[in-house]
């Protein structure tokens, strides 16, 4: 554990090498926008590092050189208008430099035109309901059985022995790769939030309100997330699994579910 702690401190600066097993940085994800989000995150992070080095650097030099024990004599100055103007205006410039690329990303996030598939996601205490709006497929998705058994208090089952403990569902959401998927969120009871880090989507599901988000997955695979808004006692037990598959596999999946709606 200590080894990991030290490694992870080093690691944030070498974030590129993060492995899935003990990730400590935001995932780059599988969409263009999740990658942009990651880059914005790293850009602001590096600005913080730079400002931190500057401020902490000056402070540390001062702590070493301007010690009474080292025989320092206190100066008497108590203000400098020039310095104050500089350190008020430079941050404003930096903030504007951060805002511009961020606003560009935000514009792209808004652009939900030409969706291929619309999926209505309704949150329940404590499961998700997915409805493929135009395909006539709908089903509930809740915590898979092995996790369900192990999550009980003092269940005696080692969570490490359960594959994808708390992150596995009975019926995953299946979507085709490279298609534009438009998600519509609402809730049946309290406020929930649907979050899949690899899609960089976190959106509140609110009763009486419909919310929208979209993604176009560039990679196929299985991607996991969780409810992110406190929604009662089983808030920690309503995971999300999204399976991104090739178009033909998706067609086959839809067909098999259309006849056999759950």
């Amino acid at each position: 554990m200590i080894r990991n702690a030290i490694l992870s401190l080093l690691g944030l600066s070498l974030a590129e090498t993060a492995t899935a097993d003990w990730a400590f940085n935001m995932p780059k994800g599988i969409t263009d926008l999740s990658l942009e989000t990651y880059r914005l995150h790293m850009m602001v992070f590096w600005w913080c590092v730079a400002i931190g080095i500057l401020v902490f650097g000056v402070m540390i030099i001062s702590l070493i050189r301007h010690r009474k024990a080292a025989g320092a004599e206190a100066a008497t100055f108590s203000h400098s208008t020039t310095a104050e103007i500089i350190w008020t205006s430079i941050p404003v410039v930096i903030l504007i430099m951060i805002t511009i690329p961020t606003a560009e990303t935000m514009v792209r996030l808004e652009d939900s035109r030409n969706p291929d598939i619309s999926i209505v996601i309704t949150a329940y205490q404590w499961k998700w309901h997915y409805k493929y709006q135009d395909e006539g497929v709908e089903f509930y998705s809740s915590l898979a059985h092995p996790s369900l058994a192990a999550r009980r208090k003092q269940s005696g089952i080692d969570p490490f022995s359960v594959e994808n403990y708390l992150l596995e569902v009975d019926h995953p959401l299946v979507v085709p790769r490279d298609a534009k998927i438009r998600l519509l969120f609402t809730s049946n009871d309290v406020v929930h939030a649907w979050w899949v880090p690899d899609l960089a989507i976190k959106k509140d599901a609110i009763p009486g309100i419909v919310n929208e988000a979209w993604f176009r997955a560039k990679k196929s695979g299985t991607f996991r997330g969780q409810c992110a808004e406190l929604c009662g006692k089983d808030h920690g037990y309503m995971p999300i699994v999204v399976e991104v598959v090739e178009a033909d596999a998706y067609e086959a999946w839809i067909d098999s579910h259309r006849t056999n709606t759950e």
Partner: peptide, 13 residues
Amino acid sequence: EYVDTITLQYTFF
């Protein structure tokens, strides 16, 4: 102009 689909949702209580 960046909107081409509008979803109107009703929740029935």
